[in-house]
C-alpha cells in the first residue's frame, strides 16, 4: 500500500469519527440564541432526575462489578487449577451474551421471573434491581471473563495455590488474599469496561422499567433539543474516562512488573 493511500484512508476515517463528536459538542452549546453557552449543561445538571438516574446507574454498576468479580474470579481460577477440561464449556457460556441479543435475554427475564413464577423477582423494586444486575452481569461476562482469564495466565496458579495451602490457607483466603491481588489489573480493567457498559445501557433498564441513566437520556432526547447533545458529551466523557482508567491500570502494572 502506498503511503499516500494509507494516509488518505486514515484521515477520512478520522474525519468520520471526529465530525459527530464535533457535532454534538457544537450543538450542546447552542441553547442560547445567537451565542454559544453552557446553558444546556446547566439545565442538565440542575435536573434532579439526572442525578437520581446517574446515581442509580452508578450503584448498579458497582453491584454488577462485585457480582462479576465474585462470579468470574473463582470460576476462572478453578477452571485453570482443577478443570481445564471444562474450559470449552465455560468459554462457550461466557461468549453467549455476544450472540443472544440483550433484548431477548431481558424478554426471557420478564416472562420467567414475573409475579406468578417460582422466583417472582419483578414483583418488587429490589427484586427487579437484582434481576437488572444479573442482566448487566451477563452483558459484562464476555469481557470480564477474558480479562481475568488472561490475567491468570500470567501467574502460576498451581504453585501459588500449593504454596498457600502448605501454609494452611483455606480456599477463601487463597482467593481473596492471593489470587485476587494478582489479577487485580485484569479485574480493574474488566470493572472499568463494565462501568462504561452499564452507564449507557438502555434496553434492559427500559424494559424492566427501572430509573436508570440510559432510559433517562432517551426520554430527554424525545422531548428536548439541546440537552441531549450535552448528555451525549457527558456520556462520551464517561466512556473515555473508563477507557483511560483501563489503560492507566494496565500501563501502571507493566511499570510495576518491569521494576520488579
Amino acid at each position: 500500500m502506498s503511503r499516500l493511500v494509507a494516509w488518505a484512508i486514515f484521515l477520512l476515517g478520522c474525519l468520520y469519527f471526529l465530525l459527530p463528536l464535533l457535532g454534538m459538542g457544537e450543538f450542546s452549546l447552542r441553547m442560547r440564541r445567537g451565542e454559544y453557552s453552557l446553558d444546556a449543561y446547566r439545565v442538565v445538571f440542575a435536573d434532579p432526575r439526572f442525578w437520581e438516574t446517574f446515581g442509580y446507574s452508578l450503584g448498579l454498576a458497582a453491584a454488577t462489578i462485585v457480582m462479576g468479580v465474585v462470579l468470574v474470579v473463582p470460576t476462572a481460577y478453578w477452571v485453570r487449577l482443577k478443570l481445564p477440561q471444562a474450559r470449552p464449556f465455560v468459554e462457550f457460556v461466557t461468549l453467549l451474551p455476544l450472540v443472544i441479543p440483550a433484548i431477548v435475554v431481558v424478554f426471557g427475564y420478564i416472562r420467567l421471573y414475573n409475579t406468578s413464577s417460582f422466583l417472582p423477582l419483578t414483583g418488587s423494586a429490589l427484586g427487579t434491581d437484582i434481576l437488572l444486575t444479573m442482566g448487566y452481569t451477563t452483558l459484562a461476562l464476555p469481557y470480564m471473563y477474558r480479562s481475568v482469564d488472561t490475567g491468570l495466565r500470567t501467574i502460576d496458579v498451581t504453585t501459588l495455590t500449593e504454596a498457600a495451602q502448605s501454609l494452611g490457607a483455606g480456599w477463601f483466603t487463597i482467593l481473596a488474599r492471593i489470587i485476587l491481588p494478582n489479577v487485580m489489573v485484569a479485574v480493574l480493567s474488566g470493572a472499568f469496561l463494565t462501568l462504561a457498559i452499564v452507564m449507557g445501557e438502555f434496553t434492559m433498564a427500559a424494559l424492566l422499567n427501572r430509573p436508570a441513566f440510559g432510559p433517562y437520556m432517551q426520554l430527554l432526547g424525545a422531548n428536548r433539543a439541546y440537552e441531549p447533545p450535552a448528555l451525549a458529551v457527558i456520556a462520551f466523557a464517561i466512556t473515555w474516562g473508563c477507557m483511560g482508567l483501563m489503560q492507566l491500570v494496565t500501563r501502571f502494572s507493566k511499570h510495576e512488573r518491569a521494576k520488579a
Binding site: 465530525l19 459527530p20 463528536l21 464535533l22 457535532g23 454534538m24 457544537e26 450543538f27 450542546s28 469496561l193 462504561a196 457498559i197 449507557g200 445501557e201 438502555f202 440510559g214 437520556m217 432517551q218 432526547g221 441531549p228 447533545p229 448528555l231 451525549a232 457527558i234 456520556a235 462520551f236 466512556t239 473508563c242 477507557m243
Partner: peptide, 14 residues
C-alpha cells in the same frame, strides 16, 4: 463502547 442513546444524539446533532 460509545453506542446506544448518546450515539444517536451525536448523529442527530451532526
Amino acid at each position: 463502547n460509545f453506542a446506544g442513546v448518546p450515539l444517536a444524539f451525536a448523529f442527530i446533532a451532526t
